[in-house]
Amino acid sequence: MVSKNKERRIHEFLKLLSENQGIIYKICNVYADSREDRDDLKQEVILQLWKSYPGFNGKSKFSTWMYRIAFNTAITNIRKSKKHPIVQALSGAELHVSEKEDIDYLNDDINRLYKAIAKLKDVERAIIMLYLEEKSYKEIGQITGVSEKNVSVKLVRLKEKLKKLMSKQSSHV
């Protein structure tokens, strides 16, 4: 009986994960700089989702829950980096500024967009990504914990910042 329940849970989990797998890949593309880091982060996110799955009570949408867990994993785990972690910590807020590799199957413009997003702070990336995913301010607030009003204020600034970064990226090409 126990193993049948567990099998059912695994099957349910796989089904939900498969329906929302784009979330994992997009978050990994935004937060990881190399193929190796993306693979590591993907594994870490899936592991964390599985560990937290017993706590998913269906009160929120699965995708909302998944975003929360995936962003938390991406933002709060220190990932492998070329820089020594102590040097990283001392260099200030932007702990993950390293040269982002192009993603093979995406074109130059999209890679430039990812590189521009990579120049934002960790939490700013989450907010702008959710906005680009057409989430409402309310949903962005539910996922990040920021109030709707603060979300709208932050987004005004972030959109301008991202436009400037994209212009800089274009002028370097």
Binding site: K51, R68, G145
Partner: peptide, 10 residues
């Protein structure tokens, strides 16, 4: 670690 709090609360 296994809670589904919002990012800020976590």
């Amino acid at each position: 670690d296994q809670s589904d709090l919002s990012l800020e609360n976590l």
